[in-house]
Every structure is written in structure tokens, then in C-alpha cells.
Amino acid sequence: MQTARDPAMMLQTKATAILLLSTVMWGGSFLFNKIGLREIPPVQFFFFRFALAALLMGGLCLPRLRRLDLTTVKRGALVGVALTLVNLTFVFGVSGTSISRAGYLNNLFVLIIPLLSFTLWRERVDRLTFAGILLALVGVWALASGGNGGFNRGDLVSTVCALFIAIHILTVSRVLRDEDLYLVTLVQFATVALAGGLLCLALPWPRFTVGATSVWAVVYCAVFPTVVAFTLQNAYQRYVNPTKAGLIYTLDPVWSMFSGMLFLDERLTPREGFGCLLILAAVAGPLLGRLVGQKRRSVYLFDKANGEV
């Protein structure tokens, strides 16, 4: 006999599976960016990706365009500026370091968010997060000292990218209200594409040739980690506990590391691997601790409501 909770539980399970799939797409974006950047310069790759993503998202949003108003455009453009900074630093970071290192450094955004929240709004940083920050610093040190080139420019840009990811997430949470998520996403993509186009016009256009592999790399990055992953996350993240969603997203660098090892023959030194493991523990540890705490509180409140405590 089905219970009333079955549909909700099934929806949560489906949402969890879809968010896991989105992390695979995001992890793959590191690989395909790296492949595409072999032929296409970073700014041009950045522009091509989001110009195509904006066109595809525009096609998906055709039935909704009549509801596009000035407020949505303004708020979407503001969030789009943050998304521009995320993806511009992403391509330069990936172009300058291994995708394994870039993935773990990008994931530091989980720890940067509470630091920014404390700095801007004096929101308390709990002990688990503070411990995670300290552990992440040790992990970054191990990562920096473990490679032949030390902490290079690509590593630095990838760390700055983590800062911009945190700013983008906070901007979304503070700026967006009840707008149509699909239209907001379209405006974001269009803003990024416009910024990329302006950069291409402002900077000297380098000479390069584009082969079939690079074209497919642009298509993959525009379709899967951009249009598809954004749409799925907007549609299904609401059905998953925020802490659980954050924990799922910590898998992004794991996929990027595996794809780097399998397809690009990237290898981490033991110290680099230890540093990546520390960063993953620093990011996932506080999230896992909160998830366990939330479950314990739920069990306690359930028992209390039934007179068992």
C-alpha cells in the first residue's frame, strides 16, 4: 500500500539523480573546455559558447518571451555580469592548469560563500565551516607545493573563479525573486554572450583555425553544462535539501579529475592528490556534518511529536 509520502520521496529521488547527472555534465565541461582551448583562444571560446547557449535558450523560451519585462531584464543582467566573471576566469584558469587542479580549486566556492556572507551581512560562520576553511588552506598548500610548477597563474585564476562563483550564487539568492527562471537564465546567457562579443571587438582578434573537435567542444559546453544543466538545476534543485544539493555538487571536481586522467593523461603527484583530497574533505565535510545534524533534528522532532522523548 502506498503512503502519502511516496510521491514526495519519489520526486526527491528523481531530483537527486538529475542533480547528480548535472555534476557529470559540469565535470565534462572542464574536459571539453581544455580540448577546445587547444585551437580556440579563451575569449573566443567563451564568446562562442554563450552565443550558442543564448540562441538555444532563446528557442526554448519563445512561448515565454511575451512575459519578459524590464524588471526581469535588469535583474537577469545583473546576475549575468557575475556569471560573466565566473566563466571568463573559468576559461583562463582551465587554459593555464590541469583540469584536475582547476576542478578542486573552483569547488572552494562552497567555503567562500559563508566568508562573504559574514563579511557583508555578519552571518555567523559555524565551527564546521571554519574547520573546513582551515583544512582547505592546507589542501591548497599541498596542491601548490606538489606540482612541478608550483601554484601557477592558472591555479590562481581558478581560485579567483571560485570567488566569482560564490558571488554569482549570492547574487542569485539576493537579487532574484519570483521571476520566470527560464527567462532569467536567457537574460543571463545573453548578457554573458554580449560581454564576450564586446571583448572580442575590443581585443586584437588572434589568428586561429577551428577543427571539428573544437566545434564539438563548443557545442558540448553550450548545450550540456550550460543550457541543459542550468535548466535541470533550476527545475529540480528546489526539491532537494540545500545542504544535500551542495554535497552533490562537490562531485564536480571528481568527474573533472577522472576525465583528465582518462582522456588527457593527466597525473597528479602524491602531494597534489593529497591536496585535492583535503580540499574535497574541506568542502564536503561541513556539508555532510550539517546533513547529519539536520536528520538527527528531524528524528528528534518526530519522536517528540509522537511522545517518544
Rank of each mutant, 00 (worst) to 15 (best):
Q2P: 15
Q2I: 11
P7S: 11
M10T: 03
L20A: 14
T23K: 08
T23R: 10
V24H: 03
V24M: 14
G28I: 02
I40T: 04
P41V: 15
Q44N: 06
Q44K: 01
F45K: 00
F48N: 05
A54E: 06
M57E: 04
G59W: 06
L62C: 01
R64Q: 12
R67K: 09
T72L: 15
R75M: 11
T84F: 15
L88A: 07
F90T: 06
I99T: 01
I99G: 02
S100Y: 08
A102L: 00
N107K: 01
L111R: 09
F118N: 07
W121G: 00
R124T: 13
R124V: 08
T129S: 13
T129V: 15
F130D: 01
A136G: 08
L137Y: 04
G139P: 09
G139H: 13
W141E: 12
A144H: 00
A162V: 04
F164H: 06
I165V: 15
I169Y: 04
I169G: 00
L170P: 07
L170G: 08
L170R: 01
R174C: 00
R174Y: 00
D178S: 15
D180V: 03
D180F: 06
T185L: 13
V187S: 09
F189K: 08
A195P: 05
G196L: 02
G197D: 03
W205I: 10
W205K: 13
P206C: 14
A212H: 03
V227C: 05
V227P: 05
A229G: 05
T231N: 06
Y236C: 08
R238G: 13
Y239R: 03
Y239N: 12
P242M: 11
A245I: 15
P253S: 11
W255K: 04
M257D: 02
L264I: 07
D265M: 09
R267P: 03
P270Q: 10
G273L: 11
F274G: 12
C276E: 00
A281R: 05
V283K: 10
G285H: 13
L288F: 15
G289E: 14
G293K: 10
R296H: 05
L301Y: 07
L301K: 00
A305H: 07
